[in-house]
Design a protein around this nucleic acid. Structure first.
Length: 640
DNA sequence: ATAGGGTTAG
């Protein structure tokens, strides 16, 4: 008998065991059980739940399969209280004896999973602690719950250690869950090693988690390595690698992978499209973004995807399209509204941003802390000091949002940039936080803007106290000295940097044209069309000089002869990009340029005049905000 | 009975 069972395939084995048990234990199943089984299968849920007390009264035990199904039904319906009801029922009937030990285990595992899905981690852990036996599934469910909960990743790893100590071997389910909890390269390397050791590294689920984990830690090469080794990839694996590239700022790489994915015969789903849109957002690839839009139409109800599309239009500076989409979206959540608020603010339309925020308060969801960052950003970039103070002071009362570091930073920016440096310093000393380097850097930027070298030196020293290795402070400090033409001090500051091996990040601008992204590096004539670009640049300079352009050499940071300074200015990356764009862009269409550093004052006035003389809309996005140049005027009002 | 990928700011 025994050996016959062993030779049967698993499913049939289980069925045979069940039927054997039935024959031996009770001759007739209770009629209530049949009803319960049917109701737990496809509902209605309330009717199935109502049967539980009847079962208890009749002294009949519900079978674990039905119970597990019922628990899943509660998850689908989002009714945590019903799940609790089942838990109560099970614990009341658990110890009446006479059942296989695994029966309780299955139901308990289901319940843990249910609690985790409802975010009731406390209940999940309590139940886990009370269980007489735990198997891989129990451990895995808890590990996954902790890995997915915010801020409990360390505990997830601890549970992985504990389960091994308890002689329960993790399986591919466990590893694919726990990989998301590896917060440092060292931990990730260790977990990866043990995955290889037990031979689970070829599992697709494990692989996609590995790729994701490496990419999220910024280790693109390792992520790519895992991906390249794979023979059989599925859609999620493709999505992981594309998302990784998109999220780490390699938009071009993400798009290339997307093309390869399609060549391999996969078609994009919502997740793929979201990542591709994010890549477009990062690189200002508006044309590609618009093509993706056509595919988004299929997924009318996917909010994440629509929010990504909305952000793409905002960050490509096309607010008409953003606005049109926003008003057509059937549903809008906090993220949709926040995207719109900061999108408008970053594009220099602060007043409209605040109007959208007003609308949000009357007909939208409750703002969150990110929304408020956008609101304060709008105030600081339009010099709206009074409004900024109002929102900052009332956000806790109105929306229950406690001001955090980011909000304080916006306030320092608001006060500092509007020239109220003393108030900014006072604000810093009165904040609820210890000022960090970000705050000091904001103050330092304001000092540079208002040419207050003494305060700048103070802020820079504070930064260097906190981050002695960070060269940003020295750069900004020496820039301030340079602005003041205190060349000796600037030189001293540069020398320190040189000695520490620091190099200023080169300015880069890029532009999407046709199906390509063209990159321009300050001072380098590396583009294949460089000769033509220089010619065009000279033509533009002649034109704008007639309109009154004078090179603002104060934006050159070294002490050089003025002619050399003009040369350095002339080949700023955004000027190269503008010249290239003028030669190649379509008539009547705006030009979009993105750059990695903030735009300098000289380029700003140059582009203003080019927009006038060429009758062209030029949009330049820097890391913080946008400049829409049209007819000699910029949307930022020369305040950035 | 347990698992992997996508959205806002900094």
């Amino acid at each position: 008998m025994r050996s016959l069972f062993n030779r049967l395939p698993c499913k049939r084995l289980a069925a045979a065991r069940r039927s054997r048990r039935c024959l031996h234990s009770h001759s007739q199943p209770h009629p209530l059980l049949a009803t319960f089984s049917r109701l737990s299968d496809d509902g209605p849920l309330p009717a199935a739940l109502a049967l539980l007390p009847d079962l208890t009264a009749a002294g009949v035990r519900a079978d674990p399969i039905s119970l597990c199904r019922l628990i899943k039904l509660c998850v689908r319906h989002g009714t945590a209280n019903d799940g609790r009801l089942i838990h109560d029922h099970v614990s009341r009937t658990a110890n009446s004896g006479g059942e296989a030990p695994d029966t309780g285990l299955f139901v308990s595992n289901s319940l843990i999973s249910m609690y985790a899905k409802f975010g009731l981690l406390h209940d999940a852990l309590e139940l886990f602690g009370d269980m007489p036996h735990r198997n891989v599934v129990s451990w895995t469910t808890v590990v996954a719950a902790l890995a997915n909960a915010g801020g409990r990743k360390k505990e997830a790893l601890r549970f992985l250690v504990d389960m091994k100590r308890d002689d329960v071997a993790p399986n591919s389910y466990t590893y694919s869950s726990v990989l998301g909890a590896c917060g440092t390269p060292g931990v990730l390397a260790a977990v990866h090693a043990s995955i290889v050791k037990v031979g689970l590294d070829s599992d697709v689920f494990v692989r996609s988690s590995l790729i994701d984990a490496y990419m999220k830690l910024g280790d693109l090469d390792s992520g790519r390595g895992v991906f390249d080794e794979m023979v059989t990839r599925d859609l999620v694996v493709w999505n992981s690698i594309i998302a990784g590239f998109a999220q780490s700022g390699d938009g071009v790489g993400a798009v290339e992978l997307f093309m390869r994915m399609k060549e391999s015969g996969f078609s994009a789903n919502q997740g793929t499209l979201t990542s591709v849109l994010r890549a477009c957002t990062g690189m200002v690839m508006l044309d590609l973004g618009r093509q993706v839009h056509a595919h988004v139409l299929k997924y009318e109800r996917d909010l994440i995807l629509h929010n990504a599309l909305l952000d793409m239009y905002c960050k490509c500076g096309s607010l008409q399209e953003a606005d049109a989409l926003f008003s057509r979206m059937p549903r809008r959540d906090v993220i949709s509204w926040s995207t719109m608020v900061s999108g408008l603010a970053q594009n220099g339309r602060s007043v409209e941003a605040l109007k959208v925020f007003d609308l949000m308060q009357s007909e939208g969801p409750t703002p969150n802390h990110i929304t408020m960052v956008g609101v304060l950003f709008a105030c600081s970039h339009a010099g709206l000091v009074e409004d900024g103070w109002y929102y900052f002071r009332s956000m806790e009362k109105l929306f229950g949002i406690q001001p955090e570091r980011e909000h304080c930073n916006c306030m320092v920016d608001l006060l500092g940039r509007s020239g109220k440096l003393d108030e900014a310093v006072k604000f810093i000393s009165e904040m609820n936080f210890e000022p960090d380097s970000v705050i000091w850097r904001t103050l330092l930027g304001a000092c540079r803007m208002h040419k207050n070298a003494n305060l700048a030196a103070y802020a820079a020293r504070e930064i260097l106290k906190l981050e002695p290795e960070d060269q940003g402070a020295r750069i900004l400090l020496s820039n301030t000295y340079a602005d003041l033409r205190q060349w000796l001090d600037a030189e001293k500051s540069w020398k320190v940097m040189r000695n520490q091996g620091a190099k200023k990040e080169p300015g880069r601008s890029w532009i999407e044209l046709g199906k390509q992204v063209h990159v321009f590096i300050a001072g380098e004539l590396s583009h294949p069309c460089s000769a033509g670009i220089v010619q065009e640049l000279n033509r533009l300079i002649r034109l704008v000089t007639d309109l009154g352009y004078v090179p603002l050499t104060e934006f050159v940071l070294q002490d050089l002869e003025s002619e050399q300074k003009e040369d350095l200015l002339k080949y700023h990356s955004e000027k190269l990009a503008v010249a290239f764009a003028m030669m190649n862009s379509m008539k009547g269409k705006p030009v979009r340029i993105m750059k990695n550093l903030r735009i300098c004052g000289d380029c700003h006035s140059f582009v203003k005049l080019v927009s006038k003389s060429e009758g062209k809309v030029i949009i330049i996005r820097d890391p913080v905000r946008f400049h829409h140049f049209q007819d000699g005027v910029c949307s930022c009002g020369d305040y950035w």
